[in-house]
């Protein structure tokens, strides 16, 4: 590949995929049905694959994943949120995969430096989005208990949805249009699932674009400590 990929944008997209992949990996052995063991691991693997391609375009994937401090990560705060219950994981997945699908579809259609990667990834992400939407319908319009859990998850994660549409250096997309499309799509799915679009701000001033600036939430440091511990314990070793 001869086109140079803008570093800030590659780190933002790569870190999103890396961190969400890690969170999904935590589900292994804990999923509610065997089919979801397979599905969640499958999505985690797709995301890890995307992360590796993106990080490798701007440096050594392992150095970037394992040797950066928390303040140097550029992922959205949304993707670093702990798994919580299955509803929480599904809503995080719905919010993120809807965004990622819109983003990659636009990047794939253009001729920018991310077009080749996006063309491949958009197919995977379409599957992730479908998976999240189907579960949103099942859980939202399932039992009273599942409906209640979905309401809670939708509201809890809502505050992290605004930062997806903050500007990122080197990512040339129509953010306003994408935001509108995102809102429409999520609202449609939630309505079909008998759920409502949460009220309240989608990002307070305290968090607008914060993940992209390296300002994260408390659970993230702990996640990195676990992820990086072994690699950091053996400086310079190869695996």
């Amino acid at each position: 590949m001869t086109t140079t990929v803008p570093t800030a944008a590659a780190l933002a997209l790569g870190d999103d995929a890396l961190v969400l992949s890690h969170r999904l990996g935590e589900w292994a052995g804990h999923a509610p049905v065997l089919e979801e063991e397979v599905a969640l691991a499958n999505i985690a693997l797709d995301l890890l694959g995307q992360a590796r391609v993106l990080l490798s375009t701007v440096g050594d994937e392992d150095e970037l994943a394992y040797l950066r401090e928390e303040r140097a990560f550029r992922n959205l705060q949304l993707v670093e949120q702990p798994n919580g219950d299955f509803a929480h994981t599904i809503v995080r997945q719905l919010y993120f995969s809807t965004y990622q699908h819109l983003l990659y579809a636009e990047l794939a259609a253009g001729d920018g430096p991310f077009a080749p990667l996006a063309a491949k990834a958009v197919k995977e992400v379409a599957y992730h989005r479908d998976h999240a939407e189907q579960w949103t319908l099942r859980l939202g319009d399932g039992t009273d208990a599942s409906h209640e859990r979905m309401l809670r998850a939708c509201t809890a994660l809502w505050r992290f949805t605004g930062e997806m549409f903050q500007p990122v250096d080197g990512l040339d997309v129509d953010r306003t249009r994408m935001d509108t499309a995102w809102l429409e799509s999520v609202e449609t799915v939630l309505r079909r699932a008998t759920l409502l679009l949460p009220e309240g701000p989608r990002s307070g001033a305290w968090s607008a674009g914060a993940g992209r600036q390296g300002v994260h939430t408390e659970p993230f440091g702990r996640m990195l400590a676990e992820m990086q511990h072994l690699h950091r314990s053996h400086p310079g070793a190869s695996w």
Partner: peptide, 24 residues
Amino acid sequence: ANWITRAPSLRRKAILMAKVQDEA
């Protein structure tokens, strides 16, 4: 799965995730 979150390189992490998925 006990080691997925601590795998020391991204390549090894991908291999391990794929393996655990195969087992399911």
